[in-house]
């Protein structure tokens, strides 16, 4: 199901392409810079892949809302309650040999957005990311 600002689908491994294409078309239409487009795509890949792999959700949606000089990205899924804003920060000062990749995705999302808010309501995880589009 898709309208101008929103896409709803079964979050499986085949869903990434539809989500990427939706964002690409929508952001292009709004004249969002390539730099911000790339950030939005990276952040979405991190959040969406968590939903696909860990949530057990059977339905997930992504809604986009431009608001002045910011862009709001809203994710909703009917999977297990999971608050990504409570995830621990990874240590980004370790050497390659000491590194693991755990937690890096959410760390990137935090750094690329100006706000990240989570709530569980109506049986859904609701996560909102705010991007600066100036």
């Amino acid at each position: 199901m898709q309208n101008k600002n929103s896409i709803t689908l079964v979050p499986d491994s085949a869903s990434y392409t539809a989500v990427q294409t939706f964002l690409e078309q929508r952001l292009e239409e709004d004249g969002v810079s390539l730099r911000v487009q790339n950030r939005v795509q990276v952040a979405t890949d991190e959040i969406w892949s968590n939903i696909v792999h860990y949530s057990g959700a059977t339905q997930a949606s992504l809604t986009l809302r431009p608001e002045g000089e910011t862009l709001l990205l809203h994710f909703a899924d009917n999977g297990k309650p999971y608050d990504p804003t409570a995830a621990p920060e990874p240590d980004t000062t370790l050497s390659a040999d000491e590194r693991s990749i755990g937690g890096l995705g959410l760390h990137m999302v935090r750094k690329m957005t100006t706000a990240m808010t989570y709530r569980f309501a109506d049986g859904e995880n609701k996560l909102e990311l705010t991007f600066d589009i100036k």
């Binding site: 790339n38 795509q41 991190e46 892949s49 390659a96 995705g105």
Partner: peptide, 13 residues
Amino acid sequence: LEYISSAGLRVIL
């Protein structure tokens, strides 16, 4: 390369 997410970083690491 347009962009890289943490899945790509894992392969690089």
